[in-house]
């Protein structure tokens, strides 16, 4: 046993980034496991797994089941077939706006926030003076809760009568008249954009750090080779660095998609997700965890969200599986 004392061990690697250890999986059974050890291992995995299965996947299945009922939480459950879905897709006026806002959220993240985060990462990867200060500033929003992000941005976006900064500045500088001051959070055609700016504020820093770490793990000799071949920085990035970053790129895509589907807090803080800020997540909450208590209907929306979420999840799992096999 004495050989097993921690101090006898090799020091732990301080970071795995860059340590692209492709440890070949040995499909070898440990015959040394005693019966007691096997039971212990079984519990180590089994208990958490059971809880996880019940709380997450079990509840997901119940949600799917409830989607075919019109349960109000009190009266007996009655199955209504596809009624909830028909209503969602045809007459319910807030479903398509919510879905399109989620899609818009995704598009803005994919075409603006995520590329912006990548751009910042590339800029900061150049080992310039002040890099750490920039990094700290860009990343700070990420540690704030989305609810707090909502409060902080409301100080900017409130209408003139609510002492919002932007409108006060625009009016004071004579750019708009008080009567024409934009209602950033109340105008249903612009408030989603206002909220998206606040959400991007947080997302950009998140992507930046993820990507920066990936960039640091790229083998320097690759860039040197590219430089010797006469490639400029842009060419080096797109033709050399970007392709070897493939694993990180998948993570970035998944994070971006999942964050867009999870969008909830800011819209909920601003106005509970109505008047131009409808999202699938707020629609679920407003219909089921609210005075309305339309649990069946809310669950149907949850099923739609689930089905959409399974796409990025599947992509991610495929990726995980492939890396496990290699």
């Amino acid at each position: 046993m004495s050989k097993l004392e921690p101090q006898a061990l090799t020091p732990a690697p301080t970071t795995v980034v860059g340590a692209r250890v492709a440890s070949p999986r040995k499909r070898r059974r440990y015959s040394l496991l005693s019966g007691r050890d096997k039971i212990l291992l079984f519990f180590m995995v089994g208990v958490p797994l059971a809880i996880f299965l019940v709380l997450i996947w079990g509840m997901t299945l119940v949600s799917v089941g409830l989607a075919f009922t019109n349960w109000d939480g009190v009266q007996p459950i009655k199955f209504v077939g596809l009624d909830n879905f028909t209503q969602l897709f045809t007459t319910y006026p807030f479903f398509w706006p919510a879905l399109s806002h989620n899609v818009l959220w995704l598009l803005v993240f994919v075409f603006f926030a995520t590329p912006m985060g990548i751009l910042l990462a590339v800029c900061l990867d150049r080992q310039m003076r002040g890099t750490s200060i920039y990094q700290t500033i860009f990343f700070t929003p990420v540690v704030l809760s989305l609810a707090l992000v909502g409060f902080i941005w409301e100080l900017q976006y409130s209408p003139l009568a609510g002492n919002g900064f932007i409108d006060s500045a625009l009016v004071s500088l004579g750019i708009v008249s008080p009567a024409n001051a934009p209602d950033w959070l109340g105008n249903s055609s612009i408030n989603i954009w206002a909220v998206l700016i606040a959400a991007s504020w947080r997302h950009i820093g998140y992507i930046m750090v993820l990507y920066l770490a990936g960039l640091k793990s790229v083998d320097p000799s690759l860039r040197e080779a590219a430089a010797i071949d006469g490639a400029n920085e842009r060419q080096t990035f797109f033709h050399v660095v970007f392709p070897v970053m493939a694993p990180i790129n998948v993570v970035i895509v998944v994070v971006t998609v999942i964050e867009s589907l999870r969008a909830f807090d800011i819209a909920y803080i601003v106005n509970h997700g109505k008047n131009g800020l409808e999202l699938l997540s707020t629609l679920i909450t407003n219909n089921s965890i609210s005075e309305a208590s339309l649990l069946g209907f809310g669950s149907a929306i949850a099923v739609v969200l689930l089905v959409i979420s399974l796409v990025p999840i599947a992509i991610y799992l495929t990726r995980v599986m492939r890396s496990e096999e290699s």
Binding site: P93, G273, K274, N275, S290, A292, S293, L294
Partner: peptide, 19 residues
């Protein structure tokens, strides 16, 4: 009824009209 008067029902309808 409460399920008619909530955020994604009557409140939204009236805001929609006001807009």
């Amino acid at each position: 009824r409460p399920d008619f008067a909530g955020a994604n029902s009557m409140q939204s309808f009236l805001l929609n009209f006001l807009n």
